[in-house]
Simulated scan of single mutants.
Amino acid sequence: MHSDPTYDRVRCAVSDLGLDPTGADPVDDALAAATETGTRIEFPPGEYLLARPHTLADVERHAWVGTGEDREAVRLLVAEEALPTPLTVTGSRDLLFDGFTFVTERSRPVEWGLDVDGSVTVADVGVTDRGDETTHDEPSIDRYRRGGIRTLSVVGRGAVASYEVTVSGRICPDASGPSHTPAANVSGPTAEGSLRDEIDQYRFTGEVTAFSLTGPADVRVDGRPVSPTRLPATDGDVVRVESRHGDPVDYRLDADAPVGQVGGGAVAADHTIEGRTSAADGWVTSGHFDQFETEAGSARLFQERVLVSPAALSAPRNDFLVAGDVEYTLRTEGRLHEDADPTLGGGTRVSETAGVTDESVHHRFDGGVSRLTLEGEGAATLAFE
């Protein structure tokens, strides 16, 4: 396969090109101007806002490389206008993309078109959404003001009511609203309070994964009235575990994002539920459920009210398609299937495949791309759901 290219110049995205690493200002113009043959662009840790799609056409020996400890340190924030294809390569060779994460709003799909005439390497690249952001320590919500901000209001009806809400991202009191809730009532992704005639208002990212209410109150999400019994919001995956015969069933349910019980309940911090039911349990996540198994008893599994095979939860969600006269190697962070039927689930638990094709090949996989190399003349697509 192809050896690493040499470059005529190395440019720091911040100090040399003037890109804003805070994500406040778009970097499109400066980045496009630096897209030229023989240039390696190095991105220091930070957030870089892509406000429009980018096309790399007819360039050689060009690289985008994150210099953080891992790909999460360099985050390319993809605006709505840049979706679903923020980056396209056409007629280019000797390209390298390494060490960064595309960040979208609320799990929007991302497609990456690679029309190559030579070689392309993609290493340690993934896609996430703002709903996954739970690791920052700042109490301020200002860093999220650029997008993905949602509001939740609890409106008292004159009698004492208590509530607790958990989200998949971050939650903070909304200082611009009529909230009286002190910051001490917020801990990580969870806020709680009690009120009588007041209005408690919050800003948050992600989805509501758990909500419980005792006493009379009205609830609004993003300014719209919502019945407390309809929370958590069901924008993500929803599953129902139902005992077949009314006998106790012990089960385990895994997801790639926080899990809350439909109608309220605690969130599973490690994204895993170990449950027991003689009737039915409902669970919701802002991401995807990816594994279900029973440890005792017999259960049926419903996803979005449709009866499904438990194996369907573990079906891979991302796609790699390649066509033309191309030699390729793909190494992923999760399971990888060859021409897999996504309704079957399961599959070989391997993470690497390689081949030479003069027609077309389709793989489905989980997680990010650890390394992808392409050499030849053809077209490929990486699609992250």
Score class of each variant (00 low, 15 high):
3 S>H: 14
4 D>M: 14
5 P>D: 05
15 S>L: 11
20 D>V: 08
28 D>P: 00
34 A>V: 02
53 P>W: 15
71 R>D: 13
75 R>H: 06
76 L>E: 05
79 A>H: 06
84 P>L: 12
92 S>Y: 07
94 D>C: 05
98 D>C: 11
101 T>F: 10
111 E>H: 09
112 W>V: 13
121 T>V: 15
132 D>C: 13
143 R>L: 11
148 G>H: 05
152 L>H: 05
163 Y>G: 01
172 C>L: 05
175 A>E: 08
181 T>C: 08
182 P>M: 11
183 A>Q: 13
190 T>L: 03
204 F>P: 01
206 G>T: 05
217 A>K: 00
231 L>P: 00
236 G>I: 10
243 S>I: 04
244 R>N: 10
250 D>M: 04
252 R>H: 03
258 P>M: 11
260 G>W: 03
265 G>P: 00
267 V>N: 00
270 D>T: 04
271 H>P: 00
273 I>A: 08
275 G>D: 07
278 S>R: 12
286 S>K: 01
286 S>C: 07
287 G>T: 03
288 H>L: 14
289 F>N: 01
293 E>T: 13
298 S>A: 14
299 A>F: 11
307 L>C: 03
318 N>V: 09
324 G>W: 14
329 T>R: 15
330 L>I: 13
333 E>P: 03
345 G>M: 10
351 S>M: 10
356 V>Y: 15
357 T>V: 10
359 E>P: 00
359 E>C: 09
362 H>M: 08
364 R>S: 09
369 V>I: 14
372 L>K: 06
378 G>D: 09
